[in-house]
């Protein structure tokens, strides 16, 4: 921090140019390590509890492939567009960056819309968080991921506003890069949810 404003390295990509940025990016990677531990615990909890359905419905009774596939496609595509946004940033094209970030944001919002609809549907079928241990762990695991995506949408909105206000600076570039790391991470978590929760749930 003390040397933050010095050590300006022109050869690096914009987001890596200041010492402060490099520290922040490394710190965020480490934070993602902690997030891995957090989701691993939630997955472990789910795997312990998912056949303990009590008097409530089982996973096979509940899940429908269509909605889940739509959610998956929306989120995976958003990860791709997020990658395009960073690509545009490296080419110093502000408009391209903003457009792709906006597309990412909309796809994320679409994902959340479908997920909320899915949850409401389950509740209408009488499958609530309170019904059984399986459903408690399902809602908390998938809901934690959904809360992360929602937070990401808010965060990305703030960064878009800052890009509009300030354009490319080492600071805004670093923020775009970090939020992209976060977004890809959520994508990876979703792949595990898709396979371990939904696909496994429908088969077993």
């Amino acid at each position: 921090m003390a040397e933050a404003a010095h050590h300006y390295d022109e050869t690096m990509p914009l987001e890596y140019r200041t010492e402060e940025s490099r520290l922040n990016i490394l710190g965020f990677w480490i934070f993602l390590g902690a997030e891995v531990a957090l989701f691993a615990t939630l997955f472990a909890t789910y795997l312990v509890l998912f056949q303990r359905t009590g008097h409530g419905p089982t996973a096979a009774d509940l899940f429908e492939i269509k909605d889940v596939m739509i959610e998956t496609l929306l989120l995976l595509t958003s990860s791709f567009t997020c990658g395009l946004a960073v690509f545009e940033m490296r080419r110093r094209r502000l408009t391209g960056l903003l457009v792709w970030l906006l597309v990412t944001l909309l796809l994320g919002a679409g994902f959340i819309t479908f997920e909320v609809r899915e949850f409401i549907h389950y509740v209408h079928e009488g499958a609530t968080m309170q019904t059984s241990a399986f459903l408690s762990s399902f809602f908390v695991l998938v809901g934690t991921h959904g809360a992360h995506v929602s937070l990401g949408i808010g965060w990305m909105t703030l960064i878009i506003i800052q890009l509009l206000q300030r354009g490319f600076t080492p600071r805004t570039a670093r923020k775009v890069f970090i939020v992209s790391l976060y977004w890809h991470f959520l994508d990876v978590v979703w792949i595990f949810i898709f396979t371990l929760v939904y696909l496994t749930g429908m088969v077993m």
């Binding site: 509890l49 303990r52 409530g56 968080m129 309170q130 019904t131 059984s132 459903l135 408690s136």
Partner: peptide, 18 residues
């Protein structure tokens, strides 16, 4: 917190809690 505030079933004695 969920178990205590929102009556979920993670660690309860019924409905599959453990």
């Amino acid at each position: 917190t969920f178990d205590r505030l929102f009556d979920t079933q993670f660690f309860t004695m019924a409905n599959g809690g453990m």
